[in-house]
Amino acid sequence: MAGLWTGGLQGVVILATSAIATAPTVAPLMRQSQLPPTVALDTALWESRGERTRLLQAIDHSLRYLRTEKARRDYAAYTAAGQPGATLGPNLHQRVIRSLERFRHLVQTRRSAAELQAAVKREFVFYQSIGSDGQGRVDFTGYYAPTYRASLVPTAEYRYPLFRRPPDFEQWSEPHPTRLELEGADGQQWRNGPLRGLELVYLRDRLEAFLVHVQGSAELQLPDGRRFTVGYAGKTNHPYTSIGQELIRDGKIAREELTLPRLMAYFEANPAELDRYLPRNANFVFFEHTQGRPPTGSLSTPVTPERSIATDKSLMPPGALAVITTQIPLKAQGQWRQTPVSRFVLDQDTGSAIRGPGRVDIFMGTGDVAKARAGLINTPGQLYYLLLRQ
Rank of each mutant, 00 (worst) to 15 (best):
T25L: 13
P37A: 15
P357Q: 00
A21W: 03
P223M: 15
V26K: 14
L162F: 03
F363Y: 15
P167R: 00
F287S: 11
P279R: 11
H213S: 06
P90E: 00
E256W: 08
S129Y: 03
I97R: 09
Q94C: 11
K121N: 15
I253M: 03
E69G: 06
Y127E: 01
A77P: 03
Q32T: 07
L4A: 09
M30H: 10
P36I: 13
Y127S: 04
T43Q: 11
L200N: 10
A81F: 10
L182K: 07
A44C: 00
R307Q: 09
Q335S: 05
F363C: 06
E170H: 03
W46V: 07
P194R: 09
T301E: 13
R293P: 00
L55R: 01
G367N: 09
E51S: 02
P294F: 15
A27W: 07
R227H: 13
T229E: 02
L15E: 13
F163D: 05
R276G: 07
A23Y: 10
Y160V: 05
T53E: 12
P194T: 11
P279V: 00
F228Q: 07
D368M: 05
Q221N: 08
V285N: 07
S217D: 05
I243K: 05
A150H: 07
P294N: 15
Q188M: 15
S112I: 05
Y65F: 15
R226T: 02
R98V: 01
Q57T: 13
I59E: 00
R49L: 09
T178A: 01
R262V: 15
T259R: 15
P294T: 14
L162C: 03
E306Q: 14
R159C: 08
T68C: 00
G356I: 08
Y160E: 02
P175W: 00
A233K: 04
W46L: 13
A320T: 09
V12W: 04
S298Q: 05
E208G: 08
P340E: 12
G187V: 10
H238T: 08
A272I: 02
Y385V: 11
D224W: 11
L195N: 10
T379A: 04
Q245P: 14
P28D: 04
R95Q: 14
L200G: 07
T326Y: 03
A145R: 01
L66P: 12
A113S: 14
E288I: 02
S342E: 12
R343F: 06
D224G: 08
V120R: 03
E51P: 00
